[in-house]
Nucleic acid binder design. Structure first.
Lengths: 200, 200
DNA sequence: CGCCTATGTGAATCTAGAATCACATCGAGG
DNA sequence: CCTCGATGTGATTCTAGATTCACATAGGCG
């Protein structure tokens, strides 16, 4: 066959992209180099020209997801007020999860997280860093007396993340029947009511 | 070898028990019939005397977990007041998750949930039924004016479940460093404050 | 006691998929 | 134009693990 030869940099990106897309349909355990290769238009063994092996591909997928989450956090910085900023972040996260079913499922999947201590640490850092980003927004809100100050910002941040997390799980379990966007709106109402500072 | 011959009923229980114990250490994908057999004191092929195959063993594991969750829900029925009842349930669930690391990780694992539509539905029902149990407690509380009535009971129930869920994930990611019990206590405080009905 | 069947065993089969290797060829740089 | 290293290919090897099967035997039951 006469497959075009491309720079390894480009191939790496294509391979990671293909992997993430495939993860929307199948789970990590099922994701084989053969599937990835076919989607990119290569032969399985060609993957080894660009990655050490399957594990390395998964690492790269993880990095890519981390980048995307950081990006989300950066995008909402333009919003000055804490609560609206959180709402933006929530809605963005919901959209992200809906378009990219792979992410929440993959990032917490056993194969990614359990098998390899190094990778577990990496995921932990990704989550921690997202969590801290959210906690920082909440602290801003507390300083500005917009968010009740009698609760630890991290606890609130975890509750906040839990909204999408639980929603994503139910959505997946229900085969998409569960309306995560609607749930997120309701949960947001409750979240806002219960964390906003009392208006004096 | 002269392994004692036991009734299939007994062997099935032993096999499921062994599987759940092993899942505390390894993930579903790694769980092989060989590991299970060794722990029970059998040879891999012997498993087939008691189960159709690996899939059937996993189904049985799932059923067992479902039983256990229903059991928890039943245990707190003795507590009459809604909020204390929820607190009991939360603490019981936390203990359950700590002692049985397998459960939250297994029940949401891709291999259990993604590969087999029938199993996904089964998990969905297990969760839904637990969720409804929690929502029922909350409705009781709302009827008794102990829990604010301006929020959908299901939304509150999901938030409630999210406490353990997120905690279990962080605990796993952090290699047990994250103190889920401490987190659960804090989250409970916040949960109670934000869902209790205003005292007039 | 002796039979008969449910259990248990070990070897053999089958499969998927990762990884490796020798060979082919594209295309950038001289 | 030529060459050489980077890419791509197909065949091959290797492994783990599920499953099957023919054979062995424990132990309940007549």
């Amino acid at each position: 066959m006469s497959t075009q030869k491309l720079d390894s940099q480009i191939r790496r990106r294509q391979i990671v992209k293909a992997a993430i897309e495939l993860l929307g349909t199948c789970d990590v355990g099922e994701l084989s180099l053969a599937m990835i290769a076919r989607r990119v238009g290569l032969v399985p063994s060609a993957i080894y020209r660009h990655f050490e092996g399957r594990e390395a591909v998964l690492d790269a997928v993880l990095d890519s997801i981390g980048d995307r989450l950081r990006e989300n956090l950066r995008l909402v910085e333009q919003e000055p007020e804490a609560l609206p900023r959180l709402k933006s972040l929530l809605m963005m996260h919901v959209r992200f999860v809906r378009e990219n079913q792979a992410i929440p499922r993959t990032i917490f999947s056993d194969e990614i997280v359990s098998r390899n201590p190094g990778r577990r640490r990496k995921v932990y850092q990704i989550i921690q860093s997202y969590l801290q980003g959210v906690a920082a927004i909440i602290q801003d809100g507390q300083a500005a007396e917009k968010i009740r100050a009698d609760v630890d910002s991290t606890t609130i941040a975890m509750q906040f993340l839990g909204i999408v997390q639980s929603g994503a799980i139910l959505r997946h379990l229900s085969d998409g029947e569960f309306d995560i966007a609607r749930y997120a709106r309701r949960a947001w109402e409750h979240f806002r009511n219960s964390t906003a500072a009392e208006s004096p």
